[in-house]
């Protein structure tokens, strides 16, 4: 399979990349790791006139804690998440997800920024970033703006990025003491999209009361979704098995999956319920042991 012919640009700076976007508009497509875009181009589901390859831009692949945030540069690779000490120590939800994205060779190329900018609810980072209440930094001709994650995913493969903007950074608030997270994913085989997955990030105080919780769901809605009712059922409450079960049932009810080769609607709702219960319990255990 061979992509339709296109012109290729490899800007050295974010400024050059934005200038190219301004010049070529919607005929151009940003390429970073290329592991979502190139398969679509080979299948001719995407036929851009011009590719702007940002992977050569230096200094955009950092992972560091600064000013109250874990800041991840747009070009940080999934493999770098897996190999990061800071993520191994403090961001178990992110580590869980990174280990289950595609396969090791794909993770050597695929980027966190690309996974989010693609806007696909079947990708794993959207649910993870919803759970973390992350912010997306977009850079355009007028400079940078921060987009709360709840305002980033607008619909099926649609994000809040303007045609002349590039996703340049992801900001995760540094979790306070007593925090834990987990990603539970069911996939038919390595490399397939999730049948469903649940991302949970929570903070529990000394008496077992849930101070804050974020729950994101993967591949069970047109746009990446937050399990809002489940979060509200747990926030401010003392966590018990019964309450967790109720919240998990709500997540199964509130998601909106499509039937496909991975299962029927009823099956996927049941998977979401089970994974949500497991993810919440795993997150609590990690919060207690943090």
């Amino acid at each position: 399979m061979i992509p339709q012919a296109f012109d290729y640009e490899s800007p050295a700076t974010v400024g050059e990349a934005i200038a190219l976007l301004q010049r070529f508009g919607s005929d151009a497509k940003i390429l970073s790791g290329g592991h979502s875009l190139i398969p679509m181009m080979k299948l001719r589901l995407a036929t851009p006139e011009r590719i702007i390859d940002i992977s050569g831009i230096k200094g955009l692949d950092y992972i560091r804690e600064v000013d109250g945030f874990l800041k991840i540069g747009a070009l940080a690779k999934e493999a770098a998440l897996e190999e990061s000490d800071i993520i191994a120590r403090k961001y178990p939800l992110l580590l869980d997800a990174a280990k289950m994205i595609a396969d090791p060779s794909v993770r050597n190329r695929a980027t966190v920024g690309g996974n989010l900018a693609h806007g696909d609810a079947a990708n794993d980072h959207p649910a993870v970033m919803l759970a973390y209440r992350a912010e997306i930094v977009a850079t355009g001709p007028k400079g940078q703006r921060n987009i709360p994650i709840d305002e980033f995913f607008l619909g099926f493969f649609m994000t809040a990025l303007e045609p002349d903007e590039i996703l340049t950074e992801i900001r995760i608030p540094i979790p306070p003491a007593g925090s834990g997270g987990a990603y539970k994913k069911m996939e038919r085989k390595v490399g397939d999209y999730a049948t469903a997955a649940t991302a949970v990030q929570l903070t529990v105080d000394g008496s077992g009361i849930c101070q804050q919780i974020g729950i994101g769901l993967t591949n069970v809605s047109a746009a990446p979704m937050r399990a809002q009712r489940s979060e509200d059922a747990l926030r401010g409450r003392k966590l018990s098995d019964e309450l967790i079960k109720q919240a998990a049932i709500m997540a199964g009810q509130d998601c909106d999956p499509n039937p496909d080769l991975r299962g029927s609607i009823e099956y996927k709702r049941s998977v979401v319920k089970t994974l949500t219960e497991r993810a919440i319990k795993a997150a609590i255990e990690r919060a207690m042991n943090a």
Partner: peptide, 20 residues
């Protein structure tokens, strides 16, 4: 699979220009 700067990659999903 080949090694690109020491890391395994799937060369069916890379453009030759990306290996420049």
């Amino acid at each position: 699979t080949v090694l690109l700067d020491g890391r395994s990659v799937k060369s069916c999903t890379l453009l030759a220009v990306q290996a420049n």
